[in-house]
């Protein structure tokens, strides 16, 4: 499971320094803000994955050894290219039951489009769109338990 986390950590190895460099050479706020947001996004995804798979956190945690050894080990475990082939199956989940068809995705999409057009054409279209959307979401959610 840790390889999924390493994937994003490796991304950060490039993105964090480049964000700093970009700010230093350009002092340009819009792009810097976007890069910072990107870094935060990566961190958030890492957090999400760790939250779902505590085994990943355990795999990445520093182990014994001298300071330098632990540091190197930690870096290697964080971004190195190795993977336990006997790893337990990835994140628990996925449908073991395949849902049958459902009309709600289509209806929900249609209602969002009506509401979106309502933003252009006016409330006479926006309100029906929102009502339709509420109905569609209700239908979708109540169908879930019959999946």
């Amino acid at each position: 499971m840790a390889e999924e986390v390493r994937f994003f950590l490796r991304g950060l190895v490039y993105l964090v320094p480049i964000t700093v460099v970009y700010w230093l050479v350009s002092k340009e706020p819009a792009g810097t803000a976007l890069l910072v947001a990107l870094v935060v996004g990566f961190v958030a995804v890492i957090g999400l994955v760790l939250l779902h798979a505590s085994s990943a956190a355990a795999e990445l945690r520093p182990r014994s050894g001298g300071i330098a050894g632990r540091l190197l080990g930690a870096v290697n475990r964080a971004i190195g290219f190795h993977e336990r082939v006997d790893a337990p199956p990835p994140l628990e989940g996925g449908p073991d039951l395949i849902p049958t068809g459902s009309p709600w995705p289509l209806i929900t999409a249609a209602s969002i489009v009506v509401a979106g057009l309502g933003l252009i054409f006016g409330t006479w279209l926006l309100l029906p769109g929102l009502a339709l959307l509420a109905w569609a979401l209700l239908g979708w959610l109540t169908q879930l338990d019959r999946a």
Partner: peptide
């Protein structure tokens, strides 16, 4: 992972 969401994104 999310079959209905999948159909939804197509229609959207």
């Amino acid at each position: 992972a999310f079959p209905r969401l999948n159909a939804f994104t197509y229609w959207l």
